[in-house]
């Protein structure tokens, strides 16, 4: 039995499931999975769950797991959800089965950490300033004003931040214009700024247990800062297979291994024959790359989780 943790709607997960041909249980964000019992005695363990498709599933018997986002949902409230999450995570953490991907809680890195590791590996990184001070930001702005300007990015991977009045969405990368700079208060919440790199194209790398699939994301419209914000307007984009040089793959392999990741994606930029490192993600949208490049990554992933080694 294979365990799959996923978001509710994920085309790629559906494609993998179609290729599986073995029993599986899928734990989704918005679908209740009830823990019926966890029973640990001196001679046996059993962990029974059920959802609206399956009942009496003994998770003690799972042979491999794929963690691709999502979390377990109880039919109780927040407190029970938290209990479920902790119980479930603890249970899988101790199991020595084939695991692809990781639970969110096991990912012990942040943007800065990853960037410094990439630099260590010899990648170019965009000049980065982290500050909450307007004067420092102004200096940084001036430094790149005559070049390609600077942009602001999120520091944490939690995309949303809520206070009493507003819900902030940090998902987007945006340019710091003179107007933005003007409006910034003298002291503000710590933020990350980067020199803007004008890339020939971006590269999205999908990493599955040592195997690389890379795509060139070619943008005809150079005014767009972050192609993810433009995904819905695909007219100006082309996504084609890309062959990363072995040397770059080796560097990325080291970065993924350093953070104990065997599944994820990396974003790079290619500018004048240099590879700039942007970020890595433990999950991510794979479908649009996989389909556009005719990669059939679902076949490899299904084989990996079926073979349990």
């Amino acid at each position: 039995m294979v365990l799959i943790y996923s978001k509710d709607v994920d085309d790629f997960v559906n494609q993998v499931i179609d290729c599986l041909e073995v029993d599986f249980i899928r734990i989704n964000e918005k679908e209740v999975t009830s823990i019926e019992e966890m029973d640990f005695s001196n001679d046996s363990n059993s962990y029974l769950v059920k959802n609206s498709y399956l009942s009496n599933i003994n998770l003690e018997n799972i042979t491999s797991a794929w963690f691709n986002g999502g979390c377990i949902l109880s039919d109780g409230g927040d407190y029970e959800n938290k209990c479920y999450e902790i119980l479930n995570d603890t249970f899988f953490l101790q199991k020595t089965i084939k695991k692809i991907g990781k639970r969110k809680v096991d990912i012990e890195f942040n943007r800065l950490d990853v960037m410094l590791e990439a630099k260590q590996q010899g990648f170019k990184i965009p000049h980065t300033l982290i500050t909450g001070n307007k004067t420092k930001l102004k200096d940084f702005f001036d430094l790149y004003e005559s070049k390609n300007g600077i942009i602001a990015k999120r520091i944490l991977d939690s995309y949303l931040y809520e206070d009493d009045e507003y819900l902030y969405n940090f998902n987007l990368t945006f340019p710091i214009t003179p107007t933005v700079l003007n409006e910034v208060p003298n002291e503000f919440a710590i933020s990350l700024f980067q020199e803007r790199i004008i890339a020939d194209f971006e590269i999205r790398v999908i990493y599955v247990d040592g195997v690389f699939y890379s795509a060139c994301i070619y943008n005809f419209d150079n005014t767009v800062i972050d192609y993810r914000t433009k995904l819905r307007n695909k007219e100006n984009l082309r996504i084609i297979p890309f062959q990363l040089p072995a040397e770059i793959e080796n560097k990325l392999d080291k970065i993924f291994k350093r953070f104990n990741m065997n599944y994820g994606s990396a974003d790079l930029m290619y500018s004048k024959e240099d590879y700039y490192f942007l970020e890595i993600n433990p999950t991510g949208q794979i479908s649009f790359i996989n389909n556009a490049c005719n990669f059939y990554i679902e076949n490899l992933l299904a084989t990996k989780i079926k073979n349990e080694q």
Binding site: E21, C216, P241
Partner: peptide
């Protein structure tokens, strides 16, 4: 018609694999 682009390293751009599979 945005069918071509220019780059000094053509070997970085393999042909698309025309494989076809379906689990159905």
């Amino acid at each position: 018609n945005k069918l071509v682009f220019f780059n000094a390293n053509p070997n970085l751009f393999p042909k698309i694999d025309l494989q076809w599979h379906s689990p159905s």
